[in-house]
Amino acid sequence: MVHSDPISTDNEGEQRDSESRLQQVLLGGHFAVTAELNAPDSADPKDVYANAQALGDVCDGINATDGSGANCHMSSVACCALMAKAGYEPVLQVSCRDRNRIAIQGDLLGAAALGVHNVLCLTGDDVSAGDQPQSRRVFDFDALHLLRTAAIMRDRGVFLSGRKLTTPPRFFLGAAANPFVPPQDLRHLRLAKKIEAGAEFIQTQYCYDVPIFEAFMRRVRDMGLHERVHILVGVGPLRSERAAEFMRSRVPGVHIPDAVVERLAKTPRKQKREEGIRICVEIIEQVRQIEGVQGVHIMAYRQEEAVPEIVERAGITRRVAMKEERPATTKSGLKD
């Protein structure tokens, strides 16, 4: 990787000594679990804590979305700062939709100062996907510009303009991948580009189609990419066939095979939620067997309470050693 060559940096040496607990888990060879926090439509920090609480005990990182689906919620920087303060391990999602390069670089510094060590660099859903499609779309950067700029700030200690930072941020940098949409046969090449731009971990779009994902991973392995980046597979429980239909028709980039929708449709109404969780657990069990998969990223939209159950039923064991590596989370109820 380009950025692991410590050439002429002031903060060399420090650079690999990451403060990211998520990175430590992945480098330790453990199967990592991250989950998505639903950023509240609220000015009350308690709402962030309430959503994070269900996730904190079973996750190695909690993603705070940045206006997911182009809908406005509490900002990801604020959610992450609150989570960091409470001892959680936040993953800051940054989208290029709403801010230009000046704002983004400022936010990266601010987030680092507030204790954020993980950044997920995204292009972002278009404004037309959300409830304020009248907005101006920015997209000054794309996800790869964002990745590399964050890497430049960290490794070179400068802004994109070349102006020096007094203290550079120390980030574990991530990116998204969506193997499930066209051009499926070329998606691994864009992943390679993201690694070149600085991605160290990947969280994929929702996986409901394991054969497509397997084919993607074969190409990834053929290029040796799985040895250069930590891959976490996106999963999530579907509440009903209606929720599935909504997601695949309205949420950009989500592919759900008919078989999954039909399975939910056939399930009696009161058992649909349970069936959705069962499907999610099955998918986790399947993707875990694929070489190069190092974790899962659980996106349980408005179902945070289901996440601990999913982790437990998927048989993902939480190691004692990992608890000790997470001194800040002194919460009870960690599962072994």
């Binding site: 939709r97 292009t123 278009d126 779309r137 997209f139 794309d142 949409v181 051009p183 779009q205």
Partner: peptide, 21 residues
């Protein structure tokens, strides 16, 4: 590209290969 990507495609491509936007 409505998102002005210089390193595309994004993850929003539709199953028919058309634009998200």
């Amino acid at each position: 590209c409505p998102k002005n990507l210089r390193n595309g495609p994004c993850g929003g491509v539709r199953q028919n290969g058309h634009c998200e936007v």
